[in-house]
């Protein structure tokens, strides 16, 4: 099929940037979106032009690198998938496809479609870990964890830190990401020990990074490739207010 791509090109953080239109001929509809971008880049290289810079790594929906705002939605139109799992068969011959980087103050553009998501790393560094000694691997069933809780923690842990939630949110809020990272640990015995400090520090870092405030539109969960639930945002709200009023930090 033939497509028209309108891709955001920006030389660097200081460049103003703008759209460049590329006509794509004979695109195989079995390709993934990234493979289609590879075809474009190979062509640009042959023509001696600068290829379009974009992040990618696993290409199987688990690393969270492939950030692209495709036709007005993060990771494109299909539900519960990252850009690398988005297939060209979802598009029609003759479509015009707009590709933009994530837009948020906390995610400055590095080049073309690449944005700096180290704000997420700093939020994790603020408390998204377990630092108490949890000993060796315990025997199975030595620490009883109900299946329901284990499943819930696992669901939170499927977050791949892609940032689509921020990209989708009208307020560029990072609540879905942070709530998944807070909940996956708060739900389990090893994580419970530091839960109060953790949520206080991670939320403080989230605010310091300049993300917006959640207004519960729920767009994040709709666009999240892992369909992380709104339940976790509610859980984090409870954790945070509870911690603020009962922790030892004055």
């Amino acid at each position: 099929m033939n497509l028209t791509l309108k891709v955001w090109r920006q030389k660097g953080p200081a460049d103003k940037g703008g759209f460049v239109t590329y006509e794509m001929k004979d695109i195989n509809h079995h390709m993934s979106f990234l493979e289609m971008m590879d075809v474009l880049n190979e062509r640009l290289e042959r023509e001696g032009q600068e290829p379009v810079h974009f992040d990618h790594d696993c290409r199987e929906g688990i690393c969270g690198s492939c950030a692209m705002h495709i036709n007005g939605r993060p990771h494109g139109p299909s539900k519960g998938t990252a850009t690398c799992q988005l297939h060209m068969r979802l598009f029609n011959d003759g479509d015009v496809i707009t590709v933009e980087p994530w837009r948020a103050k906390a995610f400055p553009v590095v080049k073309d479609l690449v944005v700096d998501r180290s704000a997420f790393d700093r939020i994790i560094q603020a408390g998204g870990y377990v630092s108490v000694n949890t000993g060796g691997v315990p025997d199975a069933n030595e620490i009883p964890v109900p299946k329901k809780i284990a499943d819930e923690a696992f669901n939170a842990a499927t977050c791949i830190s892609c940032g689509a939630c921020v990209a989708a949110c009208k307020n560029a809020s990072a609540m879905l990401f942070v709530s998944a990272k807070v909940s996956q640990l708060a739900l389990l015995p090893q994580g419970k020990v530091e839960r109060k400090n953790r949520v206080e520090r991670m939320v403080a870092q989230m605010d310091a990074e300049g993300f917006g405030n959640c207004t519960n539109t729920q767009a994040c969960s709709v666009e999240c490739p892992k369909e992380i639930s709104q339940d976790f945002i509610a859980m984090m709200n409870r954790e945070y207010i509870g911690a603020k009023f009962t922790s030892d930090n004055v």
């Binding site: 705002h69 933009e100 837009r103 948020a104 103050k105 300049g210 993300f211 917006g212």
Partner: peptide, 8 residues
């Protein structure tokens, strides 16, 4: 929190 918006 979003100084540059989306075109689409």
């Amino acid at each position: 929190a979003r100084p540059v918006g989306y075109t689409k």
